[in-house]
Design a protein around this nucleic acid. Structure first.
Lengths: 135, 135
DNA sequence: CATACTGTAACAAAAATAATTACAGTACAA
DNA sequence: TTGTACTGTAATTATTTTTGTTACAGTATG
């Protein structure tokens, strides 16, 4: 998770939440985050796939939340941008070693547990709560 | 944290813990993990800096745990390999935007909270417990 | 029909990660 | 005291991941 996707997605969603229904263009959002509009559109595309955002094409188009900010939890955002296990990838160890043969199985369990703990924390905060900080 | 360092370090420490005081060479360890010995030595160097491993140079040298496996928690390993915030890096948003100006501050708090939750989980397991799974 | 958007792909650039090579330094043991 | 078998570390290269850029077809609006 050494990337910008969580930060970017949360930024996008925060802007939309504060906008309260108004469509925002990828250009505008990109200006706020200070990144390329195409990157924003890519991230929006992903958030849309996860049911967090709706978009309208064409002139005057843009994006808005797909549901109230009170029904979006930070864990939803995490799940939307998640790609690899939170503690990192695994090696492909030597199967002839007693440790090597088994460790990935145990790592997976551990990674899942650790990730559960993280997600449980994120599930405590709604987007609506998060944006209350911006006043 | 999209890398192999946690998995690699835990593998190294598991081998040492099961070896119970016997010195293990980086070559042997590398063979078990199936990676390059120099990478192992680099990782060992880091774990040594964090007080988890002791090494002996020269012929017949190698590495061993710096303390009993019961006094090493998985959170210690996490802290040893940690580099970036667990949820990823942050953008450098537009300071002229009300969100852009503040979001990194709030992200930092959130990242710290989330990381605390993760670390708390890792603090529950000792290396000695982890290796009991290898029988 | 001109305009202003989105959606997406293809490509390029940059950054992070891992592998490799090399070799000086150290300890043991014959 | 010398050969051997290790570690420690740096320098370099290779690979993979991540981000940025460009381009353009498709869509809605007025």
């Amino acid at each position: 998770m050494n990337n910008l996707r969580f930060a970017t997605s949360l930024h996008i969603l925060s802007l939309l939440a504060l906008q309260d229904g108004e469509l925002l263009s990828s250009e505008y959002i990109a200006g706020s985050i200070n990144i390329n509009p195409a990157v924003v559109r890519k991230e929006i595309s992903n958030l849309r796939d996860h049911g967090l955002i709706e978009s309208k094409e064409g002139k005057g188009g843009g994006s808005t939340l797909a549901k109230p900010a009170g029904k979006i939890w930070l864990s939803d955002i995490y799940n939307a941008v998640r790609q690899a296990p939170i503690l990192g990838r695994s090696n492909e160890p030597n199967p002839e070693c007693i440790i090597g043969r088994q460790i990935n199985k145990h790592l997976q369990v551990l990674y899942a547990d650790a990730e559960d703990a993280l997600v449980a924390r994120l599930r405590k905060t709604q987007l609506s709560e998060f944006i209350k900080q911006f006043v």
